[in-house]
Write a protein that binds this DNA or RNA. Structure first.
Lengths: 137, 137
DNA sequence: TTCCCGATTTGGAACGGTTCTATTTATGCT
DNA sequence: AGCATAAATAGAACCGTTCCAAATCGGGAA
């Protein structure tokens, strides 16, 4: 369980002014590692902050990603998912329920970038898709 | 250069009824390996078939993907890209110009799926992002 | 503390990609 | 040729995201 003070500190580490809203968004990400979408974050935070705007969630997340504090996952064609864990790991999307799972025990060599003289590779994303245990019947 | 007859044959191979429109879409994919979006395909084909509907492109591509004849790339958050090459290879998206490049000379071991008792992995997608040579200045 | 200015938040409109739906058209079979 | 089914069409609808102008916040200066 992470505290708001820890979210505050993390934002400062990435040179992000820790407004109330940004701190709450970061707090949500730290305490909910299920790769939430904008809507998931919004629908929870609106309950404790009734004036919250969806745009603020977008603004905050876009800023976090631009500063490298958070990773955006392009794995679900429906909407973007956000991950506060920026370490090297892969993801699995269940085609049935839409949940995104971490694949942590994966060889780090998979993330080594191939030699490409024409392309300047900055990020690597490894995505698996299929059916998770809960959805198998 | 592929012929319409070859597109026709390829559709039959995947048990897809080769209508005029479907054959044209497949023909476009075979002859344009730059991972086109729906809009790119539509805006070219509409020139030779003025009554063509955008929905038809969607219908055709969704069917191709469902039958395994074509792969959809979830790499660009803006729109889906389609690839008629279903062999094991990775992709690179240029953040500047949006072009998607093939990464063909990549070790096939990267596509081996990790052992996951809870997850039934069906597909693997490896995506690189950065800046391509043309966009470097 | 109070004032001020730039940064942030807000809400609603706008945008764009994709899907849905009802209708029309084409296709294959008898 | 006629019929039944499949496919294509056009436009509305949907939904995630961005844009924009106005309101609000917050931190430094006086």
């Amino acid at each position: 369980m992470y505290s708001l003070a820890q979210s505050h500190q993390l934002l400062l580490k990435y040179s992000i002014r820790p407004s109330v809203q940004r701190t709450m968004v970061m707090d949500y990400l730290l305490n909910n590692r299920n790769h939430p979408s904008v809507d998931e974050i919004f629908s929870v935070l609106i309950r404790t902050m009734p004036t919250l705007s969806r745009t603020t969630i977008y603004n905050s997340l876009n800023l976090f990603v631009a500063r490298g504090a958070v990773r955006v996952l392009v794995i679900d064609e429906k909407n973007a998912r956000y991950d506060v864990d920026i370490s090297l790991h892969a993801h699995f999307l269940c085609k049935e329920c839409g949940k995104v799972y971490d694949i942590l025990n994966i060889r780090k060599e998979l993330f080594e970038v191939p030699e490409m003289q024409d392309l300047e590779i900055e990020t690597v994303e490894i995505s698996y898709k299929g059916i998770c245990k809960n959805c198998r019947h």
